[in-house]
Design a protein around this nucleic acid. Structure first.
Lengths: 244, 244
DNA sequence: CGCCCACTTGAACGTGTTCAAACGTCGTGG
DNA sequence: CCACGACGTTTGAACACGTTCAAGTGGGCG
């Protein structure tokens, strides 16, 4: 079954302009679409995939386990992103990929991606760039994990998700869908669930945002940015990408 | 002045096999060579470089400052690596690059790299892959920063540096040059210098290694790996890259 | 109604930080 | 040759941030 890679085109065009043939090439990428349930593994550490996954709807995440039961979430992925694009050139997965929410995922054979890039060499740079932005986000998270205290880490994460979702049109007037439990937040930010909870309370007392029921509402963008020490430069969204 | 990109070829060939023309193309890359002193900034956050840096001799590091004086070191780079290859596609630097030790650095114009890849399309994948391994190392560091305690973080770092240096022939019988102060170690691992010192003592009492005078000697590789929970898979060195 | 799950709270504990001072080595200059 | 300063390392003590364990709350859904 083949489907619509629209979200991919929208995501890429939020940064670079595409030629009509390139857009067409992307749109007609042979996709195998599957609807997955929440918390379902897609690719596992050690696998050697022959395809990559395009998030069409919902959220995905990448993680690594250490010591068997401690989990570090490495990234959250939103519609239009290809979380395991790196498997194009790194044959073995060094981490796992799973859905966060129910999600519609499009699977693309590596061969199809290589063919597409051979036909439209400029797209190579576009995809490469996507993986570089991925790495830039890792770097920023490293700074958070290593050098920011819990409340700032949380605030920073909220800023990032808002800017990213806004860039693809999924922020509606200061509100985004962010269906992340406090435990997942902790696993992403290197915190225990308990401390995540307490740090959230501390932030809530400042009325910077409302975070409940999987929705994040920004009440005070400037204040949140300040609490987070947030500078969107690392997201490399041409404009500078500042929002509300 | 032009010079020898030998270390680059050696580094790339430690993973993929290159065709003679490709090797030749790499060797004749127009390089501007400069000898830099220790702790010298090369590119700064916010810059928009038109060239990338190849480490020929010595060590380089990438870092980010937060709150003005707290530093997170993001990566250490060894001969043959191009620390800011990402600037090929991300125009603005989101972090800084500096020397760790005295170092010989070759500067390569982006144009020259683009031309080379246009002539030898397979090299595009090779360079892309380098940036993907970079990202894989970031991911592993995130796990350390978020989920490992201080001694394991240090042990893990030692394992990684040993394997990487060994892969390019810079490990001599269980010994590597690792000219990193305890403060720099802390900045890389998200620790204070004091706690780094105490954790090092704890590790020393296990006789896994000797670390002094900028040299690391591995006494018990298996023991060190165990203490670090180290699995070299994430370095993506074809063979599996296990050493002493 | 009852269960599950996420969130919340409390209390004790532990890892890591901060501040301050001292030690040793090495290179410089008197 | 020795004094001095710089720098990295080491130590101590008080403190803070974050963890762990355990129990309790509350809403949603079968």
């Amino acid at each position: 079954m083949s489907g619509d890679a629209g979200p991919l085109v929208r995501k890429l065009e939020s940064i670079v302009e595409l030629a009509p043939e390139e857009r067409e090439g992307l749109r007609t990428l042979p996709l195998t679409i599957r609807d997955l349930r929440p918390q379902q593994d897609i690719v596992h550490e050690g696998d050697r995939p022959t395809q990559s996954c395009l998030v069409l709807e919902g959220f995905a995440l990448r993680y690594k386990l250490v010591g068997g039961h401690r989990r570090q979430i490495l990234a959250f992925h939103i519609p239009g992103e290809i979380p395991d694009l790196q498997s194009l050139h790194l044959k073995t997965m060094d981490h796992s990929l799973a859905t966060l929410t129910a999600a519609r995922i499009g699977f693309i054979q590596h061969r199809a991606l290589h063919d597409l890039m051979a036909r439209h060499p400029r797209l190579t740079g576009v995809f490469w760039r996507e993986t570089l932005i991925d790495a830039a986000i890792f770097r920023e998270w490293m700074v958070g994990l290593g050098r920011r205290r819990a409340p700032a880490r949380i605030a920073h994460f909220f800023c990032e998700m808002f800017v990213r979702l806004d860039a693809i049109g999924l922020a509606k007037d200061r509100v985004i869908r962010l269906p992340v439990t406090q435990e997942e937040l902790g696993d992403a930010l290197g915190l225990s669930a308990v401390h995540t909870n307490r740090s959230l309370q501390e932030l809530r007392s400042q009325n910077l945002f409302t975070f409940e029921g999987g929705r994040l509402v920004i009440n005070d963008w400037e204040g949140l940015k300040r609490a987070a020490d947030f500078d969107p430069l690392y997201l490399h969204q041409g404009s500078g990408g500042d929002a509300p």
